[in-house]
Design a binder for these strands. Structure first.
Lengths: 204, 204
DNA sequence: ATTAAAATCCCTACTAATGGGGATTTTTTT
DNA sequence: AAAAAAATCCCCATTAGTAGGGATTTTAAT
């Protein structure tokens, strides 16, 4: 029997998954949580084999929750379950130790498949994330890693001066990166760059 | 029999709702769509009594879809179904003619209740939206309607000059509104204001 | 009718960022 | 080893936005 815990802040989705899985006789849902802190309590108590975990959750996000869970119970299989197809989040979840990654616009059939796959010591990555790699790469590799790092700080509303202080580099360097990013992305002005930076996090 | 169409870009949630509702004998799901355009086709074909409609969808958003549906089939009951508790979206959906509004962190029990309520010519608004009205008002009424209008343009990355041209007012007026908003919201700088403006749209 | 709030506009000094250069060092690729 | 890319820094003129005033008109609220 595969025991599963679900962490997800949309109760409607939890109810739906529970209803869908109810008659699967190899999978049993041992509990659900609406935020990261609840998830930790639940996992400590029930020690499920698989955790289906939203990345974006109140109180404690999926990435931090995953790290804590795998520190305490290293044999737990974590599947990241999210609506945003961002490379950043995928990378961070994988770095935290997740064994799978699926998007919410996948069907529940895929969810079952992912649960069964990770419970048999394999990894499961949503096809929708890997297939358009050509397209993803072209739109990703435009920015260098340093540029992406700076872009994240821009997304927080920081000024070039503040970013320079945080990264221990000169303001002029930050300004240069800004200019290069604006040029590479075909934007115009600080406003559009900041908007791009913030919205990138919520891509649908 | 209450016929229902679902429009929602997360297939997982659709599968869950279908599974949950399957054994309710007064409600029947006649189809689902993953975006606004598909929804219009579906509604024209099946003419459901109730449409459960995500606000944020690819191709055509819930607000536009609702307007079109109610123009063609005015007796259809539309329930807005969204993860974001934004007053703006609620207002726009109500203006478009929606009879109900529920959040995705409601349980599916609430979804059923909402479907039954609107199908009997009543309206249904999620308690979670109305209860914290004191709190919501205090955090909403901070900005005037003109300020919110300008904030929306700021969220698009526009400069004060561009906003002034779009609204046929002076740049100095836009700058004044900017300053007032920054002061009222306790922010510092254009960056934080823009970040606030963009993130407000994706509040969880 | 009076008051309060909202919306409009202006001035000045200052800081932030752009767009146009140019340049050096480190890292990676070929 | 040579070439390319990434990261670093600087200058300058110009535009964008802040923080601090002040001021008028329109639009609600009492």
């Amino acid at each position: 029997m595969i025991t599963v815990a679900i962490a997800e802040d949309h109760q409607a989705l939890i109810d739906g998954i529970r209803s869908y899985i109810k008659y699967e006789d190899d999978i049993s849902i041992v509990g659900h949580a609406n935020n990261g802190e609840e998830l930790l309590k639940l996992v400590r108590l029930k020690q499920p084999k698989v955790v289906l975990c939203d990345i974006r959750m109140p109180k404690l996000d999926g990435i931090e929750a995953t790290k804590t869970i795998l520190k305490e119970l290293p044999y737990t299989k974590v599947i990241a379950f999210t609506m945003f197809d961002q490379e950043e989040a995928v990378q961070q979840m994988l770095a935290a130790g997740a064994q799978g990654y699926i998007l919410k616009n996948s069907s529940l059939e895929v969810v079952l498949e992912a649960i069964r796959t990770v419970s048999s010591e394999k990894t499961y990555y949503d096809k929708k994330i890997h297939q358009p790699s050509a397209e993803k790469n072209s739109s990703k590799s435009v920015l260098s890693s340093r540029e992406r790092e700076i872009l994240q700080l821009i997304a927080k509303g920081r000024t070039s001066h503040q970013i320079a202080d945080e990264l221990f580099i000169g303001k002029s360097t930050v300004d240069t990166h800004r200019k290069n990013m604006i040029r590479k992305l075909g934007l115009s002005g600080a406003g559009e760059l900041l908007r791009y930076a913030v919205e990138k996090k919520y891509k649908f």
